[in-house]
Design a protein around this nucleic acid. Structure first.
Lengths: 112, 112
DNA sequence: GCATATACATTGTTATACTATGTATTTTGT
DNA sequence: ACAAAATACATAGTATAACAATGTATATGC
């Protein structure tokens, strides 16, 4: 069948969706490190984010000043880079929510 | 503010969304021509699809055998290329709907 | 001691939306 | 009657982002 088309389509849907999801997870103000975010998002949403997707994404969000990052040394193990949302990030995620909500409303009109 | 980021984000969200929307409009079996599709989608969903986006998109969907196209001469005016969905297209749009529904359920869990 | 999990990161590939541009016909406004 | 806008198709070039592959390094389980 058209498994290949669906697979490519899902990858395209993720463009845009992932930044929205990440910002929503950070929205509460709690800081997460990258590896943790991947697992958290997988647990909550069943969406798998490749590491090669997440780290560049976090850098983009940081460049846009929507999040901050901070290295935190661990008592044992590899240091972790913790990400937290900025006021501008919170503002932005609110606007994204509005758009998403409208989009969904529109789509629900044509899918039923 | 971050209007520019939001603008870019919306463009990314459309990747994947547009093919889903187009297939949904065609789902009923009625044939549409390109220019008409753009207006129909704008009317129903308020989403504006650039012509430079739609025509390549329709060609991709045709290559994937999800739609068919047929030139129809008009009594007056420019000939129109009418697009209609194939059985494979219907099948595919059903799968897309499933994924979209699940994605939305997941996102609603983290946005609230 | 070797595989797996943890934790970060970069490079190259692929797919797709959008702007700009082009062609040609028909309708609308004045 | 003439210009502008709408109708209708199409392509080329640019930017963006997901993903696979690859790399580094530490810690843990068996």
């Amino acid at each position: 069948m058209n498994e290949d088309f669906i697979h490519k389509w899902i990858s395209q849907v993720k463009k845009g969706t992932l930044s929205f999801i990440v910002l929503n997870v950070l929205k509460s103000g709690k800081a997460y490190y990258g590896y943790d975010l991947i697992n958290e998002i997988k647990k909550i949403t069943e969406i798998e984010i490749a590491e090669g997707t997440l780290y560049p994404l976090m850098n983009r969000l940081k460049d846009e000043k929507l999040i901050l990052s901070e290295w935190v040394e661990q008592e044992s193990g590899i240091p972790r880079k913790y990400y937290s949302i900025t006021p501008e990030g919170k503002n932005t995620v609110t606007k994204m929510e509005e758009y998403w909500h409208n989009l969904n409303h529109s789509i629900s009109k044509i899918t039923k």
